[in-house]
Design a protein around this nucleic acid. Structure first.
Length: 174
DNA sequence: AGAGTGATGGGCT
DNA sequence: GCCCATCACTCTT
């Protein structure tokens, strides 16, 4: 199954990630919700320049950018655009495809297993140890195209949980 | 289905 | 100090 290239800019590539497979170890889910972030975007972690936390976002595309937030949740992104562009796509939700029992076990419930950015990371076992992982090369994780096309009728809306940049319609839901 | 709220810790001004 | 790209629980329509 082919892996993806991540050189397009985040707002272009994000809707194309819908229905792609996110593989982490034995667990697989189909991506159902994403958001785009660029450097000249006040809601982006890279808007105020490079820091220790966001340095992965200033690296080559295809690497995973993981951060910890709200004291208890991890969020997973894919770095996109030209190397150093400071762009990423936040992986907000997906539908479990393989390793469902493991995801349920990690989440401690059968419903709402991966329908949010923090839940997605918990279900897949993603934490800061995955920060910087190369999704184009790593054995442990990757994003794959199994031939299912992105939806033609994806819902396009403002992004969630931000206070600035709300006018930009950079959230896509399958 | 939707609104309100407490939990909880690293990053940044 | 304050801010979060959140979640789950509770109470209310």
């Amino acid at each position: 199954m082919p892996r993806l290239f991540f050189t397009p800019d985040a707002p272009v590539l994000a809707p194309a990630l819908l229905n792609k497979l996110l593989v982490v170890g034995p667990t697989v889910l189909r991506i159902s919700e994403v958001e785009a972030y660029t450097q000249d975007d006040p809601a982006s972690h890279t808007f105020r320049g490079r820091t220790k936390r966001n340095e992965v976002m200033f690296g080559p595309p295809g690497h995973m950018y993981v951060y910890f937030t709200y004291g208890m949740h991890h969020c997973a992104n894919v770095v996109t655009g030209e190397s150093g562009a400071g762009q990423a796509i936040l992986l907000r939700a997906g539908v479990p495809v393989q390793g469902i029992d493991m995801m349920i076990s990690r989440r401690g419930r059968e419903q709402h297993v991966s329908d949010g950015p923090g839940k997605l990371c918990q279900a897949l076992g993603i934490d800061l140890s995955h920060n910087g992982l190369d999704l184009c090369e790593a054995d442990e994780a990757g994003i794959y195209d199994d031939g299912v096309a992105p939806p033609t009728d994806a819902l396009v809306t403002p992004r969630i949980g931000i206070r600035v940049g709300i006018e930009t319609m950079w959230r896509w839901t399958a």
